[in-house]
Amino acid sequence: MGTGAVMFAVLRRDLQAALRRGSEWSNPLLFFLMVCSLFPLGIGPERQQLAVLAPGIIWVVALLASMMATDGLFRGDYDDATLEQLLLSPLPLYPLVLAKTFGHWLVSGLPLSLLSPLLATILQLPSEGLAVLMVSLLLGTAVLSFIGAIGAALTVGLRKGGLLLSLIVLPLYIPVLIFGSAAVKSAIDGMAYLPPLAVLAALLMAALALAPLAIGGALRISVDQ
């Protein structure tokens, strides 16, 4: 099989598994929904106050939801030794890791981004920000998936990976959060929102080029130990 065919096979298998086990893609979404609805209860339901905080809230919660989804990215494959087979295959690791990470984004980041306008409405986000929020989340969650995959690959062999994963990954998430919420805020304030979006896209390109190398190396270390 060629590289493309294998990538497609990996992607299809992951998507099929995720669709059959519905909780894999629905749990992060439910988390996103529930935590976002906690904020008005904690802060108070005043419309203006929520409108100011909404971009930050949605971005932070989306980031946490994406991180929680990342924890299981390689776990199933590690437990049933599929990961070992992938590492043993003669194909380079880069495209395989790329396919796995992309598949993960399709079931975590993409639904989060698609659901975000609904939550934005609940949180009184001004309508000027809706489209930019969605685009920033589409780009940003993809970067988060790549960074999270590095953490997941490093911790997959550990019994208690979950909390550790967040300690490793959260500091690296910060640039994405800054530019993502900045884009939405600029759009609401009527300022140029394209520069932060362009930076997000640049981060995505850098992650696309470099992160699979780190993920592959980390997977080898986790499987070797």
Partner: peptide
Amino acid sequence: GLIALHQAFENRDA
């Protein structure tokens, strides 16, 4: 984070 990761592994080389 780095210190926490190092402590989490039992195998020193890993």
